[in-house]
Amino acid sequence: MLANPFTKALWETRRSLIGWVLGVSGVGALYAVFWPAMETPEMQEAMASFPQDILDALNYDNLTTASGYLSGSVYGLLVPILVTVFAIGGGTRAVAGDEEAGTLDLLLAHPLSRTRLAMHRVAALLTCLAVITVVLGLVLSAMIVPVGLDGVSVRDLAAMTVHLTLFGATFLALAFAIGAAIGGKGRTLASSSGIAVLAYLAATVIPQVEGLEWVRNLSPYYWYSGEDPLVNGVQTGHALLLAGLTAVLVATGVWRFNRRDVAT
């Protein structure tokens, strides 16, 4: 478990990972359990009375089907927020947090390159992220029959899981890159979170303004769920955009990290 920075990072995060898995899957399961109630005519009527703009902004654009409900509720708001928090928190800790705590010096005084340390830590975080998203997918898959999520297949959930994982990876890479390139825990957290909020607004609120619909095409949030992968399957173009941006961010972060001073 203490063989290298990758296994070390996984080992250190074991308790918090269990918490994240339980939390995210719990939120998903809780929403799913409420689907039978949402299906009732009374609830459908109540939801219909909400202004459409608000429903759009909250991603509740189709609540008449189980997949529309899951897209809007589970995968539309709370889970991506949780995943973003996990990703930005982890990405910030990977370099900037450790540096600010003063614990990076000792490791880098060892025969360990900055590239290797960074890549191992990013890989460990991506592994944790995948565990969180896959367990959520599995939990929901197991609930399809008991809860009556008609029309949702394991294949649909797998596609959604791919998008959710890549979405989380993008913000993980963003926070990692800012921390690795510039350093400073507070700065990294603040700027990554700011960008995440902007991305959310760019996919939901800003496109509602006349002439600004195109803005959503720039948002990782739109690449994540804009084309509804739960219904339409993996959107290759958007998936590649998320994966590509992740790779570029990680590479840029490592490149800058190798060229800068480590703060005391």
Partner: peptide, 29 residues
């Protein structure tokens, strides 16, 4: 750095691990 041993005056490490765990990890590096 393979041939150097370094000690800082303010030796700061993550306190959640035991001395054994830390030294095993650093030794593995």
């Amino acid at each position: 750095r393979r041939r150097i041993g370094y000690l800082a005056g303010d030796f700061i490490v993550d306190g959640r691990q035991t001395g054994r765990e830390l030294l095993t990890y650093l030794g593995n590096l």
